[in-house]
């Protein structure tokens, strides 16, 4: 119901009788009831932010890589478009006062999940159709199997945000897939982190770990994934604190990775001046923030676990 507030001066000088006799003043003098924010609002926003970061990583990475592939297949336009829609949805999810799920938002997340799955299939086909078929050589140099998974993860994390918000609002309990939201999300995030670690490991092995920093994404995030899984299985104060620390480290790693990949581009022949080759051919600058996105999802899971254990 929309009400226009009475002038402040009238309220301030209103006597008790005035208030009693004026419905408008009576209403205005009631203490303002805060918008019913569900306890999960914080982690839900964090999850939307995580989905947005994953979406941003996929948007720029798929745009650059598919530009490299000259968008030979029309379907190659799908992931950047889907990632863009996810970013819009997540921004809406963060800004929205209503903590309920939103059908269009959820549709975007579901679409990215589907396109991610489809993309993984396409990429697998690309790898197997190459001379030599399914093997290390083609896993290294064919379409990357892990990249479409990042788009799917963006969708999964966004959907989780919407489902947790809706379940909490309508049932009063933060659940996901009928299970406690925090622990389920922690498990999903751990799996996502390990998938991303595999992708980074494959690519960094291809790059012969020529810079010692290339070992970081195959050593630090697995610890984070492990302690996060630990915090889900045995939710103690100590396990949560360890998980929080390692997820923090992982989220910083995602940002540092961007800087290191920029450095990698500068080291290639012709450096940044030759960006048209080196941005496409060098280390993928938009890829590392996937770790940051997943770390944020993990932190949201921890908050939910913490609330459930109170």
């Amino acid at each position: 119901m929309k009400t226009t507030a009475p002038p402040l001066a009238r309220l301030m000088h209103a006597t008790r009788d005035d208030v009693r006799h004026s419905p408008r003043l009576r209403e205005a003098s009631q203490p303002i009831e805060p918008v019913a924010a569900t306890p999960a609002a914080g982690p839900v926003r964090l999850l939307h932010a995580a989905a947005a970061i994953l979406g941003g990583s996929v948007l720029f990475d798929s745009a650059v890589e598919h530009y490299r592939g000259s968008f030979q297949n029309r379907a190659m336009f799908l992931p950047p478009i889907s990632a863009m829609l996810n970013i819009g949805s997540s921004a809406h999810g963060i800004a929205s006062r209503d903590t309920d799920a939103h059908p269009l938002r959820s549709l975007s997340y579901v679409a990215s999940l589907a396109i991610g799955a489809l993309g993984a299939g396409f990429h697998l086909y690309n790898v197997t159709k190459r001379v030599g078929g399914f093997g290390w050589q083609n896993l290294f140099y064919g379409a990357p199997l892990g990249a479409p998974a990042a788009l799917a993860l963006s969708g999964v994390v966004g959907l989780a945000a919407d489902r947790i918000a809706a379940n909490e609002k309508h049932t009063g309990e933060a659940t996901l897939l009928g299970l406690p939201a925090g622990r389920t999300l922690a498990a999903l995030t751990s799996l996502g982190l390990m998938g991303t670690v595999s992708e980074a490991g494959l690519m960094h092995f291809r790059g012969n770990f020529q810079n010692p920093a290339m070992y970081l994404p195959v050593t630090l995030p697995p610890v984070a994934a492990g302690v996060l899984a630990g915090a889900a299985l045995r939710p103690t104060r100590r396990s949560r604190k360890a998980a929080k620390t390692w997820l923090g480290v992982t989220s910083v790693l995602g940002v540092a990775g961007v800087a290191l990949h920029c450095y990698g581009v500068s080291r290639a022949m012709g450096g940044w001046r030759n960006w048209r080759q080196n941005v496409v051919d060098g280390p993928p600058i938009p890829a590392p923030p996937s770790f940051t996105g997943l770390a944020l999802a993990g932190l949201a899971a921890l908050t939910l676990i913490e609330r459930a254990s109170r």
Binding site: R68, G69, S70, Q72, M269, R276, Q277
Partner: peptide, 17 residues
């Protein structure tokens, strides 16, 4: 190819340069 080499190596593909 010095300094700029080739990126798109599959048959039928060409770099903008």
């Amino acid at each position: 190819a010095s300094p700029r080499g080739f990126v798109r190596l599959d048959k039928g593909m060409r770099d903008p340069w």
